[in-house]
Amino acid sequence: MTGWLGPEEWQAVALSLRVSLWAVGLSLPLSILAAYALARWDFRGKQLLNGVIHLPLILPPVVTGYLLLLGFGRRGPLGGVLEEVFGLVLAFRWTGAALAAALMAFPLTVRAIRLAIEAVDPKLEQAAATLGASRAWVFLTVTLPLILPGVIAGAVLGFAKAMGEFGATITFVSNIPGQTQTLPLAIYTFLQVPGGDGAALRLVAVSVAVAMAALTVSEVLARRAAKRVAGG
């Protein structure tokens, strides 16, 4: 594999996978919580929360990236706190790329999971409660297994979005090879230099392959989960 891809290209692929996996892994529990809140709870500011979650989907990615830079830059209010308390620097680091990818993927993941939660019959959850299960147990033993296909679909969708994120990433963390130069950024960079077409095409092929693989894995997993849920 490394023989086929140049070291710089391989670096971009590995970085993109790392960024996307972290982005999806860390945001998934939060997506499930947000989706559950939007689907099941009634609270003040629900419409506002819904709007904020969906904002990255509608805003130009450059705007999202710039807002991230303002908030999470080393002099930004949140970035400063993160650096002081946790020693975590986001600006111009791969961690920042992961945050940008997570934020852009979040609305897609939440939507998919929310649809799955809305399809779960609350009567089943009631039945579990009458059998002695507390709310947390009901969620773990009934709701979560039943929405698993939706969670998988949401995660894959989010992963694909994270792999392809460009605008917010380049604005927030720039385009530093080995640090923040993800797959799309690398393709873009190769296209800017004379003779870079070959490398760009190889990366395009990797992109397509990763996307197809992710889709296939999620299809298989979701089908298996759906079969379980249907009680067949």
């Binding site: 009567k123 089943l124 849920v229 009680g231």
Partner: peptide
């Protein structure tokens, strides 16, 4: 509900499909 310990049989069964 979960601390009342009353077994409830519903009209529509409500078995866990998974």
């Amino acid at each position: 509900v979960h601390r009342r310990r009353l077994g409830y049989v519903f009209q529509d069964g409500r078995l866990f499909p998974h």
